[in-house]
């Protein structure tokens, strides 16, 4: 289908180019001097008009006419000199036509093959809204966001944040969590989720704004596991591996045996200890240090 359309388009365009080359009877165009003289005749007419209106004196008009006459003579003289130029042969025309007919489609096809994505159909938003569940969810989230603008509720924003999080729109999710925390009583979990979303929005870097969210989380509940994990990660990102492992071991110590994060945590401890070249068991577990306000 694609290739059919492209081929059709190419055929139409190329044949339009070839038509003048292959046409048998070549109409003889008027000579160049004829074109020039049309302009000069019009200039002569203008001079006549200007004399009529009294803008030009007779002497001025005479001088102007003489000049225009000379231009006409010069144009005609050049024409006579140029008349001897060679006329092309029909053979050359056909060669040119063949070259065009081969190179244009070939070149276009190859360049398209390099640049195009023939497998990708158009995806107008209206269509996707009917078929793509993620787009539907996003649109719903957008409606929810609009509603919340006029009637802000903490729980609503939390829900919105979760939807955006699911859609991997971390920037929006973080904004929604922020609104939720601002409006609500700010549970430790909500604060740490805000922090985590900020981290993800920043491509995994534990940035200061995330740190302040985690600090808030631990202010509310010093045992909040997610915040403690990220405190460790922040230390690791600041190249303080021992400190990171210490925080994580502290978290590991406090975690229930079936805590869902435990396997990941253990992996992390092992990996970072290996990178730092020390035995994790030698590190004393330490809780995160909260900056004093």
């Amino acid at each position: 289908m694609y290739w059919l359309v492209f081929a059709l388009l190419t055929i139409i365009c190329v044949s339009a180019l070839l038509y003048p080359l292959l046409r048998r009877s070549q109409s003889t165009a008027a000579s160049r001097a004829d074109y020039d003289n049309v302009v000069y005749r019009s200039q002569l007419t203008e001079v006549a008009h200007e004399v009529e209106r009294g803008v030009l004196t007779q002497a001025q008009a005479h001088a102007a006419r003489t000049e225009i006459h000379r231009r006409m003579l010069a144009a005609t003289a050049v024409e006579r000199k140029a008349a001897a130029s060679p006329k092309g042969s029909r053979h050359a025309r056909i060669t040119a036509a063949v070259v065009i007919a081969v190179l244009v489609p070939l070149g276009s096809g190859l360049l398209y093959a390099a640049l195009g994505s023939p497998d990708l159909p158009d995806q107008p938003y209206a269509e996707r809204l009917k078929h793509d569940p993620n787009v539907m969810i996003a649109a719903a989230a957008h409606r929810l966001a609009t509603d919340l603008e006029s009637k802000p509720v903490a729980a609503g924003y939390q829900r919105l944040a979760e939807i955006y999080f699911y859609l991997r729109e971390y920037d929006r999710s973080a904004l929604a969590y922020q609104r939720a925390v601002d409006l609500g009583d700010g549970s430790a979990e909500m604060w740490s989720q805000l922090g985590e979303t900020i981290v993800l929005a920043n491509g995994g870097a534990v940035v200061p704004s995330a740190m302040s969210a985690f600090t808030h989380a631990l202010d509310v509940d010093v045992r909040e596991p997610r915040a403690r994990y990220y405190f460790g990660l922040a230390a690791a990102q600041a190249h303080k591996l021992r400190r990171a492992v210490a925080i994580w071991r502290d978290l590991e110590k406090d975690s229930a045996a079936d805590a869902p994060w435990l396997p990941v945590l253990k992996q992390h401890i092992a990996a970072y200890a290996k990178r730092g070249g020390f035995d994790p068991a030698t590190i004393t577990p330490e809780p995160p240090v909260l900056p004093k306000p």
């Binding site: 359309v5 244009v104 158009d122």
Partner: peptide, 20 residues
């Protein structure tokens, strides 16, 4: 379809311009 045709038309235009 439309988008890809747009790209193809642009590419074809490149070669037509060369001829012109």
């Amino acid at each position: 379809m439309i988008v890809e045709t747009g790209l193809f038309a642009l590419i074809l235009a490149l070669f037509i311009a060369a001829v012109q």
